[in-house]
Structures are given as C-alpha cells and as structure tokens.
Design a protein around this nucleic acid. Structure first.
Lengths: 124, 124
DNA sequence: CATGTAATATACCAAGCAGTTAATTAACCA
DNA sequence: TGGTTAATTAACTGCTTGGTATATTACATG
C-alpha cells in the first residue's frame, strides 16, 4: 500500500501510461481504442494492466456501455502533484535566474572571474 | 534506460526520496545529515541508494568536501514535469469548476456531509 | 442458441527495486 | 602509523512490475 502521492507519481512514471492519459485528454475512449496505438508493441492484456494502474491511482475512471468500458480522464490526482510542486516553484525560478546570470557572465568580457562552479549542467 | 521524464517521476514516487528533497530545499546537507531522520526505519546504505536514484534522475547533485559529500537540490528536472503538467492544467480547472458546482448542489440541503478525511499530509 | 466482439482474469516469467549485512574506500587526526 | 568518521560497494533476499499466452466472462445479434 502506497501513499496516494507516490501512487500517482509512479503511475505517471511510464510512457505508455502517459500516452494513454494524453489520448484521454481528447475525450472518452474504449479500451480497444486506447490500446490501438500500442498493439504493435504490446498485447491487449498489457494495456488493460496499464489502465488498471491508472485506475487505481485515480487518474482514469471506467464506465460501462454494454460490452464497452468507456474510459475518462480524472485529473484530480494531478492537483496533488501540482500542490506538491508548489514548494519547489521558487527553486525552479531561482535556478533559471542563476542560469541567466551565468550566461551573462559567460558572454561578457574575459575580465569576469569564473562563475560559482557551473557544476556540470545535466541537461543543457 | 528510461526516458528522463519517467525517471524523474519514478524518483519522486517514494516518500523517503521526497522527504530528502524537502530537506534539501532548506540548503545543502551531507549524506549522514540527510539520513539522520530515517535511521530509525532504514540503514545508511539504504539512504545512499535513495540518494543515488535522485542523483541519476538529476534531482540532486553531490559535491565533495574532504570526507563529506554535500548534497544539493537541482530543481531542473522538475521543470520538465511542470511543463508536462501544463497540458492538464485546463482539465484540472475544469474539474475544479465541476467540484464547485457539485458543492453548490450539496451544500444546499441540510445534509452537510463529513469532510473527506483530512489525510495526514506527509509533506507540507 | 451459436457466434463474434470487448474486456478481464489467471498463471507464469524475467527484470528491477527496496532493503539488509558486511566489507571497503577515502579522508582526517593524533 | 593506526584509529575514527563519512560514505560507498558488494552480495544477497523478498517483493513488485511489465510483459506474455491462454482461458473466461459478458454482451449483442444472426
């Protein structure tokens, strides 16, 4: 049993599942419709499993229409992530500022001394 | 090898790791300092492993000061998550509206239902 | 009723992960 | 030099995860 936030994060930690969510942004879809783009890489039960993960995380809800299970996006859990991120927003902007200043010092004349350890930029 | 976004999400899908990040928001800390709050539930190598996950995801960078490895928060990967969430922001507001309307319909009659379990929030 | 379609359940496997204990590296200090 | 502290590595375990093939349930219609 995981806490809800962990469950949401881990549900999102898979490109197939994120693609399913992206598809659902455009509206309801049945399981086979959702599965269709992946059937070259994965079987239908595979997709069903991914859907179940999303469902357990509360990101997707399934209805019933005869033999179809129309799936809908439920963005509620994303709000919790959004809220969690809030605390880091200032840091994100800070590091943007630092990058800006770093770039300034780098593009300025040679007389400027070395910036405070650019520290390997992971992703440029 | 995972795509970077999946790697970030999955790094965040653990309460210990999120707590470490939260601690790092307040500034640099050595591994033992970071580990201290968890040592009742987990050994030091356990924490080291979590740190390595965060490091691989690019969320934490380690420096060196003699025998210490001062760790710092690197919020860069969070920007990607933020960007990813952008596409869902409209949906979140939509569902907020729906919640608002739902509450309106619910708060009309006398049947004020109980608040949905405050649920101890781990990280403020 | 028999058949086709939508979806899930079951049982299994390989790989990865969270955690442990014990050993090891690396730096400082006296 | 030897001892202490900081941190990592190695080797192992149990559990979860992502995927499969196969079987099964549920519904609609000829």
């Amino acid at each position: 049993m995981q806490d809800p936030l962990s469950q949401t994060f881990s549900a999102l930690a898979d490109p197939t599942r994120r693609a399913i969510l992206a598809r659902l942004r455009e509206g309801e879809a049945s399981v086979t419709e959702l599965a269709e783009p992946f059937l070259s890489q994965m079987t239908l039960p595979g997709v069903t499993k991914h859907l179940k993960v999303l469902e357990k995380a509360g990101l997707v809800t399934k209805g019933r229409d005869a033999q179809w299970r129309p799936c809908r996006l439920n963005p509620e859990p994303l709000k919790d992530i959004n809220e969690w991120m809030e605390a880091y927003r200032a840091h994100m902007e800070d590091s943007l500022d630092r990058l800006g200043e770093y770039l300034k010092t780098v593009t300025k004349p040679v007389t400027q001394n070395a910036p405070t350890t650019p520290s390997e930029n992971h992703e440029p």
